[in-house]
Nucleic acid binder design. Structure first.
Lengths: 201, 201
DNA sequence: TAATTGAATACTATATATTTTATTCATTGA
DNA sequence: TCAATGAATAAAATATATAGTATTCAATTA
């Protein structure tokens, strides 16, 4: 899912994506997608094994742009490791909120993918964990973090922020309250770290 | 949901509960429940307004026993506030695991209740938060915790442990790994607190 | 020979008919 | 008068028929 796609495949994804967003996965037909691309239904299958794979590729594309933004935060030279950690988690919250809020079609699609392609969700969570681990390692090297196992700690931080990345909260709750609560969790993580840095001396 | 029930109502709950566990909510009929109690279907409605209310009362009963166990931990004179916090969260994980693991019927029922009676879930989470807040306040008074707003901090701790109380993880994952990760989160919470106690001096 | 088509097939979803089950309530028994 | 019944009704679930859609593949095109 990280490799480059054919130009035709990109065209199919663009057309399919528009319809998924407007009408939802279920209400989008393969012949509609084919028409939008001025090709036959059969030809779609030269580029994607199934309709579900088009949806998966579309979702992957969205998560790829999210991962890029999160990676930029991790690589930002003007930010401290602590600032990166907070910005990473808050940005992930904001991106998810913007994606789902007031978008029942996207939400529906997300539910389908969670059922049909759970490995894909895990893969992207793993990649995000990898970026998070990088932030932690950088902080550890700089002496501002004290972390034994950065991969494990990244996973635990993802656990602690899990409530803020599960799509079903983005309807009911308003984002300000969520941001507030997430900030308090980050405060706790950073204070725990401060204590560990002290103890290590 | 905290008040005492009629003896007949208890009998109905017992009979219904057995069938819910064995065959699930959907596959249990009102006339089966009535038969088990040697009464007519109509009479069930003298004690519960609907079948869903029987399910809700049954679920409430389960959560009441859980809350009792959690409250005992909070009131244990032989445990430190830190020990109580860890035991509270680990016990909640264990109780949920024992309830759901290998019990597809209970899981199914839980899903139905989440949809039909979301307020009931919130109410019990609120009550558990209340017990958690008590632990935090006790620690604060004893000087081992430094907490501004115990209700808010209880809510944030529940957020951070959210991943471990959402029922859908109890199938896939094994409990040892979950306990391990939860323990690390508790370590973080306690270390954050240690730092705050120090700073307050 | 690789790319593409579109009709044929297999599968899914929707609409309809049928059956089962939840709920009500006039009646009965204690 | 209160507790309970069980047949009558309303609602939901299931089975069946129908229509729509995903997928395949032999034929066609570039």
């Amino acid at each position: 899912m990280l490799e480059e796609l054919d130009e035709t495949a990109e065209q199919i994804l663009d057309a399919a994506g528009k319809r998924f967003i407007h009408y939802g996965y279920g209400k989008t037909t393969m012949s509609e997608i084919a028409n939008d691309c001025n090709m036959s239904t059969g030809n779609l299958y030269r580029y994607f094994p199934s309709k579900m794979d088009i949806a998966e590729a579309f979702a992957s594309r969205v998560r790829r742009t999210h991962l890029k933004e999160l990676t930029q935060i991790a690589e930002d030279r003007d930010r401290s490791p602590s600032g990166k950690l907070r910005e990473f988690l808050q940005t992930k919250l904001r991106l998810s909120y913007e994606l789902y809020h007031g978008n029942p079609r996207i939400y529906e699609m997300s539910q389908v993918i969670v059922i049909e392609r759970p490995e894909m969700i895990d893969e992207w969570a793993g990649r995000e964990g990898h970026v998070l681990a990088h932030i932690l390692e950088e902080g550890d090297k700089a002496g501002v973090f004290k972390i034994e196992d950065s991969a494990l700690m990244a996973k635990v931080i993802q656990d602690a922020a899990f409530r803020f990345s599960t799509s079903n909260i983005y309807y009911a709750e308003d984002i300000e309250q969520l941001q507030l609560e997430l900030d308090i969790i980050v405060d706790l993580l950073l204070d725990a770290n401060m204590y560990r840095v002290q103890q290590a001396k």
